[in-house]
Simulated assay, not measured.
Amino acid sequence: MKDIEEVDTSCNAVFSDPPGEELTPLQYFGTMCSDDIIQKLVEQPNLCCIQKTGAPLDTNVREIEKYVGINVLEGVVKMPSCRMYWTEATRFSPIAVSMPRNRFDKLRNYLHVNDNTKMKQREDPDYDKLLKVRPFVDKIKQGFSIIEPEEYHSVDELIIPFKGHSSLKQYVKSKPHKWGIKVFARADSSGIVCDFEIYRGKGTVHNDTGLGISGDIVLRLVEGLPKYKKFKVFTDNWFTSYNLISSLKNYGILAVGTVRPTRLQGCNLKADSELKKQGRGSYDYRTETERNIIALKWYDNKSVVLASSYKGVSPVELVKCWSVGERKYIDVPRPDIVREYNH
């Protein structure tokens, strides 16, 4: 039972100078959705239409750019039905004028990113559930990779809302959108997604490190961070384990995360009942001295267990918290590791 030894946390990442001219929104969009993607969205719908009907779709780059723009705008100006943008009573001119409704429907029907004939059978070891959108996903990842990383990053899961038929569809009751496609993402402190991996069951990641899928995903998502630059990564208890924090430390990446007690073998922290008797703000901690990794249980309204490779107990600050029983604000001790994670 000792505090973590002091760690040099100075992040020596170097950032480029800001651009000389401010980019337009369209130019920023082009850095993520490149001309290669648009060209794919021209070639593949034409090919799909020929395969199904024997006649070409006769679309082009300009028309596909309009189609993408309409979809973006529909996400801003929302209506219950797609056709309402063209209906006389609810007509929305920026969309209705740019493309006829029937043409939009036809483009949507034949929208493809990859050749269907390349799809392998499920029994094939090279079968890819994301083959139909693989070129698009890879290009978007490539666009994200040009974003220069900030010091602080968070790895978490998010849901792309979707209720259609797909083997990728998941139900996550804790999310605002409970049905959809699960995506694991790394975002920086500005809220910008820097890398992501779509969950597709077995085969989501190929780097079997012995940490389980949760740990493998974190190591996969931090691949884009330069090593030994002392970036900070935050995770929740689905990802965090002692072995993960130790592995990140080998890459020169510091970490803080909430952790399940079952993933801290041999680390016996005080029971919740004992901490509850001591009152709000009580805590117990242990440090694995060989790797200088600390585990701490802090009791507020309920207990939370955290693990860290660079933040420990000290300094302990007093924070104002509302007490229901006393009906007033009281001072509650908060260790530094808890402050860092909340921040």
Rank of each mutant, 00 (worst) to 15 (best):
V313C: 07
P18T: 07
S190Q: 09
A295C: 12
R186G: 10
K276Q: 13
V332K: 01
I337T: 02
R280T: 14
E88H: 04
I198Y: 06
L23V: 09
R286A: 12
E21M: 06
S145M: 08
I160G: 04
T31F: 11
A307H: 04
G325E: 05
R334F: 00
S167C: 05
S154V: 15
Y299G: 01
E21A: 07
V304N: 01
P19N: 07
D128F: 04
A13N: 13
I95G: 06
F29M: 13
G224A: 08
I294W: 13
A89I: 14
R220L: 06
I293D: 14
D138F: 01
G210Q: 03
V77T: 13
E274D: 13
P80N: 06
P100Y: 05
L41C: 13
V172A: 03
G224R: 10
A13R: 10
N60V: 10
Q51Y: 04
D58E: 12
M119F: 11
D17P: 12
C321A: 07
K132W: 08
W238C: 01
N237S: 12
G312Q: 02
D300N: 11
V113Y: 13
W322P: 07
S323I: 05
G279S: 03
N250S: 14
K320Y: 05
P19Q: 05
V305T: 15
D208A: 00
T240G: 01
A55Q: 14
C194T: 14
N268F: 10
G252W: 10
M32C: 12
I217D: 14
M84R: 08
G54N: 10
V137C: 02
I140H: 09
P135A: 00
L73I: 11
W86S: 09
P135W: 00
G224C: 12
